[in-house]
Simulated scan of single mutants.
Amino acid sequence: MATLSSTPSIFSSSSTAKTPHPKPPQPTSPFFFPKPLPTALTIALATSTLLTSPPSIASQPSTYYLYYGTAASAANYGGYGGNSDKKASAEYVYDVPDGWKERLVSKVEKGTNGTDSEFYNPKKRQEKEYLTFLAGFGQLAPQDVVLNNLALSDVELQDLIAGADSLVSEEKKDENGQVYYVYEIDGIGKHSLIAVTCAKNKLYAHFVNAPAPEWKRDEDTLRHIHQSFKTVGPF
């Protein structure tokens, strides 16, 4: 029987030297493959893993800017901008993620449902925060009464409450002892965070809304802007 060294091999040297040199031992398995193939396969699998991985949390907004709201009445709502110092006349503040856009509220809308300001994510327009206010409220009513009264002028809120899978409410106080009602509503395909308080004989309600897919993806950002709302100035 011929030995391994006397058998022709596809891996033998192509040297033309007259004196034969010893050949390196050859693998005995007929399924041996050169090294480049598993290397290429490893790269392909790694690329596939990267393409199918979920979005990184680094895509979330990392910076915010502070919005100053004046809660001006419809009668005094003379346009968008002007020379007034909004910071000096602000009645409330909240954080807005970088990249979000402001939706300009009309005078009619301000007069009918009390919407004072609104911002939205241009990539997911239904992901938004806005504030409404009502004059003539010296203190907060019971929690369920307040939420139902807010829904009277907000059809979307009515539908959300009616079809809610869960509705949680609680009372909180800030460092100055001011009371805030906080609501979290998990509805059909939508999530909402609401904070309500009274100051300067007005009721302020701050809303953060998002469709269910955006809520799951951006929950940290949405909770941040929800928690950033507070009233400012002398009370």
Rank of each mutant, 00 (worst) to 15 (best):
M1W: 08
A2S: 12
L4N: 06
P8C: 05
P8N: 05
S9C: 12
I10R: 14
S13L: 02
S14G: 08
A17R: 15
A17Y: 12
T19Y: 08
H21Q: 15
H21P: 08
K23S: 15
Q26N: 03
T28N: 09
F33V: 15
A44G: 04
A44W: 02
T47N: 00
L50A: 12
L51K: 07
S53D: 11
P55D: 07
T63E: 10
T63D: 12
L66H: 02
G69R: 01
S73G: 14
S73W: 07
A74I: 03
Y77G: 02
G82R: 07
N83Q: 11
A88V: 00
D95H: 06
P97F: 10
G99T: 02
W100R: 03
R103S: 07
R103K: 04
L104H: 12
K110F: 08
G111V: 04
D116F: 01
S117H: 00
F119M: 02
K124D: 15
Q126R: 11
E127N: 04
E129I: 03
L131A: 09
T132K: 13
A135V: 14
G138E: 10
Q139P: 01
Q139D: 09
L140W: 07
Q143E: 08
V145C: 00
N148H: 08
L150T: 01
S153G: 00
D154P: 09
L157E: 03
L160Y: 07
A164T: 03
D165V: 05
S166L: 11
S166W: 07
E170T: 01
K172D: 02
E175M: 04
N176L: 03
V182G: 01
E184H: 10
E184A: 10
N201W: 09
L203A: 05
A205L: 12
V208R: 05
N209A: 14
A210I: 04
E214D: 12
W215I: 06
K216Y: 13
L222M: 13
H224C: 04
I225K: 09
H226E: 11
H226N: 06
Q227G: 06
V232M: 08
